[in-house]
Structures are given as structure tokens and as C-alpha cells.
């Protein structure tokens, strides 16, 4: 349904995309994952025809976005990072404008009512957009993307700036829309991808570093418990002790030292709770734990994990 072939985008000397390729099958919800500034929005802006690429090709349902943009744009509903709204308009009025703009042929009243029903906007149709909460503005943004019933929906960070309740609602909405549309969901939030998407493309510094099923991503995230422990005592002795403990997989100094304590990043297998053996071992030697907190994996950790898993798999195949 969507094909990106070796797409480059340069902003002067800055190489935002360095030759990315990926494809999305019909009915898939693809998570487009990457930290801020990775090139996600640039890629999506190229796909939706807002920007042109320096080199490469992009197709939507077999239609080239560069050669036949009018036809390709008809297939896409796009919610940019900042919903493209006109605050002075009423919700219904705005949706009617988008309907005209997209030159839709479906029955106007029925179509707009159906969309308002799906995104739960019916009761605010007569309100001015500027008076709506951020969550509702986001819904209006999604509603405009749905107008014309496009085959592909592209959502660029749709949950940014929303409160937890709104985030859950928007995620559920995206999941529901995924039953009838092919969706690209760009985000820098890992759990969002896990909850909503069926596949993930990870982008970092303008390059695709992983293109995996959601199971592979989950696998990469699971399997390890990580803690940051603040321990009093001589650094080398404590480190030696930690590394000798069979319950721990690894231990490293991460700094944040003060006069009496050092912080360590320690990892154990997921099915082992290392906290009690850790406490006992340190207490036996007279080293005091003055802080212990669990830490989640960062996006960068996931990239490293996904890439190294992939290399292992490919290495295995070659052997």
C-alpha cells in the first residue's frame, strides 16, 4: 500500500533522511518509532506531499507521490504533529471545508455525521475550535484526516501533549481505525507502538535502524530488569562484589558520585528478583544501599538491542 524507496532529504548541509526504504502492507498499523529529530516528521511530510525528497521514490497504492501528487494525495488522510485547524471556525464548518477541499463525492451530511460519530465529536459540532480542549482539537484533526475515506491514514505523534485519559482514548481510536485503514503512526513513545501497532520501523539520525514485527520489539524490551543502585563503599570493591553475584547479569558504574556513594546500573534476568540477594550480599560486607530504583529502557537502548538481535539472527543464518 505504501512504498518508500531509498528516500533522501537534505536541508542545506543537514541530511535529514539518508536513504530510507520501507513498505506498509494493506491493513497494517505501522509504528514509526524514533527519538525527536530522527527524521520521522520529514519522512511523513514527504509521504503526504507536503515536502519533496532530494532523491528517491514514494508510492501510495502504486501511485507516485512525486509524479502524480493529486492522485496520491486522495488516498491519504494526514494528521500532522500540530493539527491543521482554523481556530475561528466551528467544528462542523471546518469539516465541511475539508470535505470541499478534498472534493469528496460521498454524501456530505451522512459522511461528516459518521466521522463525528466515530471520533466522538457529534456533541461539539457547533463549537468554535479555539474553545475546545487539546484532546478535542486532536479529535478534530483526526476527523479531517478521515474525510474522503482515504485508504491510508498518517498520524504524526497524535498523543503528544495530551493527558493520560486522552492518550488512551486516542490510542483506542487509532486501533479501531486500523480495522478499515492502513495506518502509519509516528511516535517516540515505546509502549504506544507496543499497544497499537502490528509492525515497527525504527528510525534514528535519518536512517532506518530496524524494521521488525511487534513481537520482536517486545522480545527486545523484555528479558531484562534494570536498576540504578546507589551504594556506599569503595567503588572497585563494590563493583567486584556486584559482578560476582550470580543473580546479576551485569553491573557498571554510571557515576553521579558524591563523597560516600557511587551509582551503578545493574541488570538481572527478568524472572529473577535480584533485590533481596543484592541487599544481603552488600549488607554482609558492610556496604549500605542508600537508593535503588527500577529503570525503563530508553529508545537508544532499544535501538541497540534490536540491531544487535538482528545481527545475531543474521549471523546465525549465515552460519
Amino acid at each position: 500500500m505504501i512504498e518508500f524507496k531509498n528516500v533522501y532529504k537534505d536541508y542545506g548541509q543537514n541530511h535529514a533522511l539518508k536513504g530510507i526504504s520501507f513498505s506498509v502492507k494493506q491493513g497494517e498499523i505501522l509504528g514509526f518509532l524514533g527519538p525527536n529529530g530522527a527524521g520521522k516528521s520529514t519522512a511523513l511530510n514527504i509521504l503526504t506531499g507536503y515536502l519533496s525528497a532530494t532523491a528517491g521514490e514514494a508510492f501510495v497504492d502504486g501511485v507516485s507521490i512525486f509524479e502524480n501528487p493529486m492522485e496520491a494525495k486522495k488516498q491519504i488522510g494526514f494528521l500532522p504533529e500540530m493539527p491543521p485547524l482554523y481556530p475561528e471556525m466551528r467544528v462542523g464548518e471546518y469539516l465541511n471545508f475539508v470535505y470541499d477541499l478534498k472534493n469528496c463525492k460521498i454524501s456530505r451530511k451522512q459522511h461528516i455525521n459518521d466521522i463525528c460519530e466515530v471520533v466522538k465529536l457529534s456533541h461539539v459540532k457547533n463549537r468554535l475550535i479555539k474553545n475546545l480542549s487539546k484532546g478535542y482539537k486532536q479529535r478534530v484533526g483526526i476527523a479531517q484526516a478521515l474525510i474522503g475515506n482515504p485508504k491510508v491514514l498518517v498520524f504524526d505523534e497524535p498523543t503528544v501533549g495530551l493527558d493520560p485519559k486522552q492518550i488512551i482514548e486516542i490510542r483506542n481510536l487509532v486501533k479501531m481505525l486500523g480495522k478499515e485503514h492502513t495506518i502509519i503512526l509516528s511516535t517516540h513513545i515505546l509502549p504506544e507502538v507496543q499497544q497499537v501497532c502490528s509492525r515497527v520501523v525504527v528510525i534514528n539520525e535519518g536512517l532506518i535502524v530496524a524494521d521488525e514485527s511487534i513481537e520482536t520489539l517486545t522480545e527486545a524490551l523484555e528479558g531484562t530488569r534494570r536498576y540504578i543502585a546507589k551504594i556506599c563503599g569503595a567503588e572497585q570493591d563494590v563493583l567486584k562484589l556486584l559482578r560476582s553475584l550470580p543473580v546479576l547479569r551485569s553491573a557498571d558504574v554510571i557515576g553521579a558520585q558524591d563523597a560516600n556513594s557511587v551509582s551503578y546500573l545493574i541488570e538481572s534476568d527478568e524472572n529473577i528478583d535480584a533485590r533481596v540477594p543484592l541487599f544481603n550480599a552488600l549488607a554482609a560486607k558492610g556496604y549500605a544501599i542508600i537508593g535503588l530504583e527500577g529503570v525503563d529502557m530508553s529508545l537508544e537502548d532499544v535501538f541497540v538491542r534490536l540491531v544487535s538481535n538482528k545481527e545475531k539472527r543474521e549471523g546465525g543464518k549465515r552460519r
Binding site: N45, Y50, P69, K73, F78, P80, M82, P84, L85, V98
Partner: peptide, 14 residues
């Protein structure tokens, strides 16, 4: 400024 041009530029309008 308000980025609403993204709607216009990504719609099937020249």
C-alpha cells in the same frame, strides 16, 4: 505560522 497550510498542501489541490 499556525501550520494549517499543511492541510492545504497535503490535500488534492494545486
Amino acid at each position: 505560522k499556525t501550520k494549517s497550510e499543511q492541510l492545504l498542501m497535503t490535500s488534492p489541490v494545486s
